[in-house]
Design a protein around this nucleic acid. Sequence first.
DNA 1: TATTTGCACTTGCAAAATGCAAGCAAAAAT
DNA 2: ATTTTTGCTTGCATTTTGCAAGTGCAAATA
Lengths: 137, 137
Amino acid sequence: MEKTVKRSKCPISCSLDIFGDKWSLLIIRDLMFFGKTTYGEFLKSAEGISTNILAARLQSLEESQLLIRTEHPDSKAKVLYKLTEKAVDLLPMIVEIHLWAEKHLTITPETRALIQEVKKDKEGFITKIMTKLSERI
Amino acid sequence: MEKTVKRSKCPISCSLDIFGDKWSLLIIRDLMFFGKTTYGEFLKSAEGISTNILAARLQSLEESQLLIRTEHPDSKAKVLYKLTEKAVDLLPMIVEIHLWAEKHLTITPETRALIQEVKKDKEGFITKIMTKLSERI
DNA sequence: TATTTGCACTTGCAAAATGCAAGCAAAAAT
DNA sequence: ATTTTTGCTTGCATTTTGCAAGTGCAAATA
């Protein structure tokens, strides 16, 4: 859990120290696009993260201030995770990953159609999503 | 070395299966921005990758067709690694990582100045670098 | 009120990935 | 002919990950 060790001062390296693993961006994706907000919902995602890894990643993302744990309005037993502005600002990067994947990987037709929409008005899409997310912070 | 196992059909997940680790993007960075092309040059980078990990990553990136091993013009003992178009197409994402890092992380003044330049004309910068890299493929 | 269920984790242990130091073969330099 | 450079590989300790089971608190149910 030594997320604090910076390997260099390079901005890419520092960024990877924060979210450069197989799971962190998927949790952010779940919050950003799929409206997931709880531990149990993250667990159900298709990739199948294990419980201890999810707990560790949530803690690390919280320490990096990419998300915050808040009280859930429905129940004290639940925890509501929210993206911070710092996390929402990752959207442009995530959009570029989509565009790259659409060009170079095998993508399902539905996903491809969606990404085509993004391509038509990238800035508009980013603004729309970021506005929506900002309202929830 | 099981890079072939896809966790889901999600484009982000598939992308992370390819370059979602602490080292792959740093090797691509070295090729993209620092003109490094050989094993020995990658080894010298500030982050200090170990020899076996570097060898494994180079192989995995080659398998993912993000780079190709070619003969070095200077010597048969050397291997010249080149970015593919698939890797060059990661530049917009890498630029967005820089912009995010400039906003949210502690960046050295020199790096910050450079990123400011990118911000003035993001498309122009990307086109410039991509053209330069494409000439070398 | 007692009991069961749901939720967010924690724990123990095996397996895999990483990191470090040393070694190694082919090519190049001396 | 010998040494150095280059791009790795190997062995082993450490760290991280993955899986299964368990825990404690809150909420729902009987």
